[in-house]
Amino acid sequence: MTNNVAIHTQGLTKFYGKVEALVDLNLDIVRGEIFGFLGPNGAGKTTTIRTLMDEIRPTTGSATIAGLDTHTDSVEIRNHIGYIPGDLAMYPNLTGRDTLTYFSNLRGGVDWTYVDALAARLEADLSKKVGDLSTGNRQKVGIIQAFMNKPQVYMMDEPSAGLDPLVQREFQGMMKEAAADGATIFLSSHTLSEVQRVADRVGIIRTGHLVTVEGVQALRSKAIRRVDLYFDNSVDASVFKPIDGVRDVESRNHHVSLSFDGSMEELLRVATSNYTLTDINTQEADLEEIFLTYYREAV
């Protein structure tokens, strides 16, 4: 582990009775990185975040944030953390501003000019009681609460829940700016387009086990992509089947479509050897397809 590592977990494991919620999680997330944490419902994402926040204690293993142990140094760590829990709940009888004041007092104060700027940016109404706000507007108060002390590490569990697309974009911009300033963001989300847009790396967790950790670009480039080839004449599908990495070939009229994760050079060589290729269209897989592929493997 180097000083550049913001979040480090070592064999982090959490059992609820005999249920394995999280098994042997080893992870390093560096400073300034936005780390997307993906997985189906009940995969262990929230358990990971709650363990890192010292809400629950690991059965075995340990974790550090900014070099400090998440259990023994938890109070010190929380000076430097912004947190949005999943299924955010706040005090219904307090206004947004009262809520922020309460948490700000527990932190020894915050810069209220910055808070007001955040509220303006998210179009959040801090004068209303939290209990009277819609889900999205309540979430805005939660986001401001996480950002207001300009933390070094952001722990976010489904932070975009209920936000409209415009506010989501604004929020993504806020995350990118924070990361550009050197903050680390641990982002658990089902909004895959958001993760794809902001994350540097992605970890996929399934039934408590970390399946893969990759850079978003690397993951996408390695993934199966859809290729459409157009010829001046009909070409039989069997021509492409022997090529390594080709799957699901279909031929209709002058159009051949296939899924492909092999060498593009080989595919083009075959396509142009005895036929006249008039057009080619290749589509990089988006995160959703990759995500679904990983999950389907579990079924």
Binding site: M53, E76, R78, Y83, P85, A89, Y91, L106
Partner: peptide, 10 residues
């Protein structure tokens, strides 16, 4: 469900 948020503070 507010204890987690409260304990996210130092």
């Amino acid at each position: 469900n507010t204890m987690g948020l409260l304990l996210a503070n130092p």
